[in-house]
């Protein structure tokens, strides 16, 4: 076991973890933040996406110990007080979810897409860049609509 320290949603946190502890388990089990989901065993679904040092990554395929000193943002870190982040609001407005299991990962990926491609990101780029996020419910149309609307308001 060794102590790992990082910044989680702006707050300094630490935990005594095993080397094999995944970042997603550190977030969910050590920090009690269950917004980040685990949808697969194969690094394919994207339900676990968080930002580490500003980049969208899969927290199920990242070691907690490797995030020593990192800045980590999860879906819980987006809203300011009672105000949803523009991307969260757009998912609500455009019905970009049904069961909601994929939604935290979708939103974290969506914000990363806008950061890299700008507010006017095209539907084509959104669809291509969401390829690492799987949704079992919606059929993606409303997710893409939500991302485009959210992008414009970011």
């Amino acid at each position: 076991m060794s102590v790992v320290k990082m910044k989680l949603n702006g707050k300094a946190v630490s935990g005594d973890v095993e080397a094999r502890t995944l970042l997603v388990d550190f977030i969910r089990q050590y920090q009690g933040m269950t917004g980040t989901h685990v949808g697969c065993d194969t690094s394919q679904c994207g339900a676990c996406v968080v930002h580490v040092n500003g980049k969208a990554i899969k927290s199920c395929t990242t070691l907690a110990v490797a995030c020593e000193g990192a800045e980590v943002t999860t879906v819980e870190g987006l809203a300011k007080g009672g105000d949803l982040h523009a991307m969260q609001a757009a998912f609500k407005e455009h019905h970009g979810l049904q069961c909601g299991f994929c939604t935290p990962g979708m939103i974290m990926s969506a914000i990363d897409i806008v950061k890299r491609n700008g507010k006017n990101v095209s539907e084509d780029v959104i669809r291509r860049e969401l390829s690492g996020n799987i949704c079992r419910c919606t059929g993606y149309h409303n997710i893409v609509k939500a991302v485009q609307a959210g992008a414009a308001n970011m």
């Binding site: 994207g46 899969k58 990363d112 690492g132």
Partner: peptide, 9 residues
């Protein structure tokens, strides 16, 4: 290669 997250790592 893969999706965005795979390319980031």
């Amino acid at each position: 290669i893969g999706g965005v997250h795979v390319r980031h790592k």
